[in-house]
Simulated scan of single mutants.
Amino acid sequence: MRNISDVIESYLKQIIDQSNQNAIEIKRSEIADHFQCVPSQINYVIKTRFTVEKGYIVESKRGGGGYIRISRIEYQDEIKLINELVNMVQPKISQQGAIDIIERLLEDELITSREARIMASGISRDVLAVPIALRDEIRARILAAMLTSLKYKQ
């Protein structure tokens, strides 16, 4: 069974997909009431599931009329997206950040699920068994090379 974070994420993504502008403005308390959870659960979902690596920009305004705006970053050109991702991973990236990028590529259908598994395996901390100070830099270099190879069809 899916947990509440998965349900909230799916709900918000569905609303974004139905939006004409690929963006939504929500009130944290209203979403929390809808799902009968604490507002901090909504914060957690937004902070972990709607990141730049996953293709989202989150803005918030505090106060009585406050809101949280979640926008899906759209690219018309796959090459521009890949170039942006290559720049994003340099000079180092965490394993979770790299996984988020791989999941985004999969969601945008730029890679297959098999390719995603291969990429994730190649950048895992189990494979990169080097001191932590070097691991994120090596991971970034490997991921950048993988991303660059996606720009060329064959």
Rank of each mutant, 00 (worst) to 15 (best):
M1D: 13
M1W: 08
R2M: 14
S5L: 10
V7S: 08
Q14Y: 06
N20T: 10
N22F: 08
A23P: 03
I24K: 02
D33H: 10
F35P: 04
I42H: 03
Y44I: 08
V45E: 06
K47W: 01
F50Q: 01
K54I: 01
G55C: 07
I57L: 12
V58D: 08
V58G: 08
K61F: 06
G64Q: 10
G64Y: 06
G66C: 05
G66N: 07
Y67M: 03
I70F: 06
R72H: 04
I73A: 01
Y75A: 04
Q76V: 04
E78N: 13
L81M: 15
L81G: 01
I82L: 15
V89P: 02
K92M: 06
I93T: 05
Q95I: 11
Q96C: 00
Q96H: 08
Q96R: 13
G97K: 01
A98C: 04
I99C: 01
D100Y: 04
R104P: 04
L105Q: 03
L105W: 03
L106E: 15
L106Y: 09
T112E: 11
R114I: 14
A116F: 07
A116V: 07
A120E: 13
A120Y: 00
S121D: 14
G122I: 04
S124Q: 01
V127I: 15
V130W: 02
I132A: 14
I132C: 00
L134P: 00
R135N: 08
I138P: 05
A144M: 03
Y152G: 00
Q154C: 03
